[in-house]
Deep mutational scan, measured.
Amino acid sequence: DEDSERELEKLRKNNASKEEIKEVLKRLGFSEDEAKKLAEKAG
């Protein structure tokens, strides 16, 4: 959803580590696997 998109955008701009991105995604309700895949894509 839009909030998670914004959250990811912010992380990308701040050069967050894949680990940080994954944690945020998991907080947003993604499964471990989904979060890992998305973090890879974002990283």
Rank of each mutant, 00 (worst) to 15 (best):
E2G: 11
A16P: 02
R12E: 02
S4L: 15
D1Q: 13
N14H: 08
E2H: 11
R6C: 15
A35P: 02
K36V: 13
K10H: 08
E19M: 04
L38A: 05
F30A: 01
E5Y: 14
K36E: 15
G29M: 00
R27Q: 07
I21P: 00
L11H: 02
R12P: 00
A42N: 13
E32K: 02
L8T: 03
E40H: 07
N15E: 05
E40A: 09
L25P: 00
G29H: 00
K36M: 14
E2N: 11
E19L: 05
E5D: 10
D33P: 05
K36I: 13
V24A: 14
K41D: 11
E32G: 02
E5V: 13
L38D: 02
K13D: 04
K18W: 15
E23S: 07
N15S: 07
G43N: 11
S31L: 04
K36G: 12
D33V: 07
E34D: 10
E9Y: 03
A16F: 07
E20G: 03
G43Q: 10
F30M: 06
D3S: 10
E19K: 04
G29T: 00
E23I: 05
A42M: 15
L8F: 06
A35R: 01
E40R: 06
E9T: 09
K10C: 15
E19C: 09
L38K: 03
S31V: 02
G29I: 00
N15H: 12
I21Y: 06
G29R: 01
I21V: 04
K37G: 06
K26Q: 11
N14V: 07
F30S: 00
N14F: 08
A39I: 11
E7D: 05
L25N: 00
E5T: 10
K13E: 06
A39Y: 06
K41P: 08
E7Q: 11
R6H: 08
E40G: 07
L11T: 01
L11P: 01
E7W: 15
G43H: 12
V24L: 13
A42V: 13
L28N: 01
E9R: 14
K37I: 11
K36A: 14
K41H: 11
D1G: 11
E23V: 04
N15I: 04
F30C: 07
N15T: 04
R27E: 03
E2I: 14
D33R: 05
E34Y: 06
K26I: 14
E34I: 07
N14Q: 12
K37Q: 10
E23T: 04
E19V: 03
E7I: 15
